[in-house]
Structures are given as structure tokens and as C-alpha cells.
Deep mutational scan, measured.
Amino acid sequence: LQAFIKTLTGKTFTVEMEPSDTIENLKAKIQDKEGIPPDQQRLIFAGKQLEDGRTLSDYNIQKESTLHLVL
């Protein structure tokens, strides 16, 4: 599935991932794409901060969901 990552500066980019991917995997993909170390990334979806060990499906993240990236 493709999801949108929106930063506080208003920049939006897309990442490809599977519902079974962990938040940790997602942070690694963001690092590959944007060069931001995972330990500096905080991802917010539906008002909740996402925990590394959980999966996208745990948070009911669907295709074309928008996640907010806070540094």
C-alpha cells in the first residue's frame, strides 16, 4: 500500500509498504528516502504516536492514509 508522510514544514512524500510492516520498518524507509535517522522520527496517525514494535494494521493504516512526521 502507498501512504503519505507529511512533515511539519508541509512537505509530503509517499512510501510503499505492507500492512504487516512494523513502524520500525516504516521509519527505515523514511530514512532511505529522506535521510532522517529513525531515532529522530515521531510518527503520528489519528492523533496517536506510533510505537516501533506495532504494525500498520495494528493502527488500521490503509492505503493513501496520511501520517504526520514530527522531528
Rank of each mutant, 00 (worst) to 15 (best):
L1S: 06
Q2M: 13
Q2R: 14
Q2T: 15
A3E: 03
A3T: 10
F4I: 15
F4C: 10
F4P: 02
F4D: 03
I5Q: 02
I5N: 02
K6T: 14
K6M: 11
K6L: 08
K6H: 14
T7P: 05
T7A: 05
L8F: 11
L8D: 14
T9C: 14
T9H: 12
T9A: 12
T9M: 10
T9I: 07
G10Y: 03
G10W: 03
G10I: 03
G10K: 03
K11Q: 08
K11S: 08
T12S: 10
T12M: 11
T12K: 07
T12E: 09
F13V: 04
F13C: 02
T14L: 11
T14G: 05
T14V: 14
T14A: 10
V15K: 00
V15Q: 01
V15D: 00
E16K: 07
E16I: 12
M17C: 12
M17G: 03
M17R: 00
M17W: 12
M17E: 00
E18V: 11
E18F: 14
P19E: 10
P19W: 14
P19A: 12
P19R: 08
S20N: 13
D21I: 05
D21T: 05
D21V: 03
T22R: 07
T22S: 08
T22F: 06
T22N: 04
T22L: 09
I23Y: 01
E24T: 08
E24L: 15
N25Y: 11
N25S: 12
L26C: 01
L26R: 00
K27C: 01
K27L: 02
K27I: 02
K27A: 01
K27M: 03
A28K: 15
K29N: 03
K29Y: 07
K29C: 04
I30T: 00
I30E: 00
I30C: 00
I30Q: 00
I30S: 00
Q31G: 07
Q31C: 09
Q31P: 00
D32H: 11
D32R: 11
D32E: 15
D32W: 10
D32T: 11
D32F: 10
K33D: 03
K33V: 13
K33Q: 13
E34G: 06
G35I: 01
G35K: 06
G35W: 02
G35M: 04
G35R: 05
I36V: 08
I36D: 01
I36N: 02
P37H: 11
P38T: 14
D39K: 10
D39F: 10
D39H: 13
Q40A: 09
Q41T: 03
Q41M: 13
Q41V: 07
Q41H: 03
Q41N: 02
Q41G: 02
Q41S: 03
R42W: 09
R42T: 14
R42K: 12
R42D: 05
R42N: 11
R42H: 12
L43Y: 04
L43K: 01
L43G: 00
I44W: 15
F45N: 03
F45E: 01
F45P: 01
F45W: 08
A46R: 14
A46N: 15
A46V: 06
A46H: 14
A46C: 09
G47H: 04
G47L: 02
G47Y: 04
K48N: 10
L50N: 01
L50D: 01
L50F: 02
E51C: 08
E51R: 06
E51G: 04
D52F: 03
D52A: 07
D52H: 05
G53I: 06
R54A: 09
R54T: 06
T55P: 08
T55R: 12
T55E: 03
T55V: 08
L56E: 01
L56Y: 03
S57V: 07
S57Q: 12
S57G: 11
D58H: 08
D58L: 02
Y59F: 04
Y59N: 02
N60V: 07
I61W: 08
I61L: 08
Q62N: 14
E64Y: 14
E64D: 15
E64V: 07
S65K: 08
S65A: 13
S65I: 13
T66V: 15
T66Y: 08
L67H: 02
L67A: 02
L67G: 02
H68R: 06
H68V: 14
H68S: 08
L69G: 01
L69C: 01
L69Q: 01
L69K: 00
V70D: 06
L71E: 07
